[in-house]
C-alpha cells in the first residue's frame, strides 16, 4: 500500500476498477479457451468495457472541462438514439434541432456552475419553448404525441444525465476530499456494479418477477440481492471516495441501487413499447448508449440531490 499512498483516492479507485476488469478479462479468456458457448458475446462485452472505462478515466482525470464535454457528448448520443427510435413527425425536423441545441446549453450551465439555471432550463424553459415551437409548426395531427415524446426524451437523456456532470462541480462545492471525480466515480461504479449484481442474483435465485410485462427477468430476488450487495460495497467505498460516513454511504448505495433499477426498467418499457431489443448497435456486446446509461438516468439525479440536500 505504500506505493499507492502517494496517489489520490480517485487514482487508487481507478486502479481497483482496472484490476477488476483484468480479472474479468482473464475469466472470459479462460471461458473462450474452454470453448464455452456464448463466450464470443462476452468477449465483445468485456472489450467494450475496456473502451468505455478507458474513455471515462481519460475524461475524469483530465479535468472538469473535459468531463463536461465528454458527458455532454454522451447525452447528445443518448438523445440522438432516442429520436432515431421513436416515431417523429416530418414537420418536426427543425423542432428536433432545437432539442439538440439544448444539450450544449445545459452542459454550459453545469460548467459555469450556475445551479439555478441548470435546474430550471430544461424542465421550465425548454419544456415551454419546445411545446411552443411544435404548436407554431401549425400541425395538430399527432401534436400531443410529439410534445409528450420530445420533452420526455429531453428530460431523460439530457436533464437527468447532465446531473453526472453536475457531480463534478458539486464535489468541489461541498469540499469532497476526493473532489467531484470522487462523487462521479462512486455513483457510476456503484450503478454499473449494481446492474451486474442484480443480474447475477437474479440468474442464481430469481423467481418472482417485479414487473413481468416490462422485464420478465427482473425479479425480487435479483433486485434485493443486488441492493444488499451494492449497499455493502458502498459502505466501504463511500468513506474512501466521498464525504459520507459508512452509514450515509449505505443509504446512498441503497438509493443508487433502487433508482438504478427503476431507470433500467423504464428504458426497458420504452424499448418494449417500440418493439426493439437494443437501442442501437453502437457498443458491441452492450447495444446502444441508452442500454448502457439506462440506470444512470434515475440514479444520477437521485444521488446528486441526496448529496446536495444533506451536504451542500
Amino acid at each position: 500500500m505504500s506505493v499507492l499512498s502517494g496517489l489520490s483516492t480517485v487514482h487508487q479507485a481507478l486502479i481497483g476498477i482496472y484490476a477488476l476488469l483484468l480479472i474479468a478479462s482473464g475469466i472470459v479468456a479462460a471461458l473462450l479457451r474452454k470453448g464455452v458457448s456464448g463466450s464470443g458475446e462476452l468477449v465483445a462485452r468485456v472489450k467494450s468495457w475496456w473502451w468505455m472505462i478507458g474513455v471515462f478515466t481519460f475524461a475524469i482525470l483530465i479535468g472538469p472541462a473535459a468531463s463536461v464535454i465528454f458527458l455532454g457528448f454522451l447525452s447528445f448520443l443518448a438523445l440522438k438514439e432516442y429520436f432515431s427510435l421513436i416515431p417523429t413527425r416530418r414537420i418536426d425536423r427543425e423542432v428536433l434541432l432545437w432539442a439538440y441545441l439544448a444539450v450544449p446549453i445545459q452542459f454550459y450551465w453545469v460548467y459555469s456552475e450556475w445551479y439555478g439555471m441548470f435546474i430550471v432550463f430544461i424542465p421550465v424553459w425548454m419544456f415551454l419553448f419546445l411545446s411552443m415551437v411544435i404548436t407554431l409548426r401549425g400541425e395538430t395531427e399527432g401534436f400531443l404525441r410529439a410534445v409528450g415524446t420530445y420533452t420526455w426524451g429531453l428530460m431523460i437523456t439530457v436533464f437527468a444525465l447532465s446531473h453526472l456532470a453536475g457531480l463534478m462541480f458539486l464535489g468541489r462545492e461541498i469540499g469532497n476530499p476526493a473532489g467531484g471525480a470522487g462523487l462521479l466515480l462512486f455513483l457510476v461504479f456503484l450503478t454499473q456494479f449494481n446492474d451486474v449484481a442484480q443480474f447475477t442474483w437474479g440468474k442464481l435465485f430469481g423467481k418472482h418477477a417485479i414487473v413481468s410485462k416490462v422485464s420478465p427477468k427482473k425479479t425480487w430476488e435479483g433486485f434485493l440481492g443486488g441492493l444488499a450487495t451494492t449497499t455493502l460495497v458502498a459502505v466501504f467505498l463511500g468513506p474512501f471516495l466521498t464525504v459520507m460516513d459508512p452509514l450515509w454511504s449505505a443509504f446512498a448505495g441503497a438509493a443508487i441501487a433502487a433508482a438504478g433499477f427503476i431507470g433500467d426498467v423504464t428504458i426497458s418499457a420504452l424499448k418494449r413499447d417500440l418493439k426493439v431489443k437494443d437501442s442501437s448497435g453502437l457498443i458491441p456486446g452492450h447495444g446502444g448508449i441508452l442500454d448502457r446509461v439506462d440506470s444512470l438516468t434515475y440514479a444520477a439525479p437521485a444521488f446528486f440531490h441526496i448529496i446536495r440536500y444533506f451536504y451542500a
Partner: peptide
C-alpha cells in the same frame, strides 16, 4: 433507413439521426 429523416430531398438542414 434513416438518412431520409436526417436530410430529405429538398432540405438543406441536417438533423442528427442514426441510420
Amino acid at each position: 433507413y434513416g438518412l431520409g429523416r436526417a436530410l430529405p430531398k429538398g432540405s438543406f438542414i441536417l438533423v442528427p439521426f442514426n441510420c
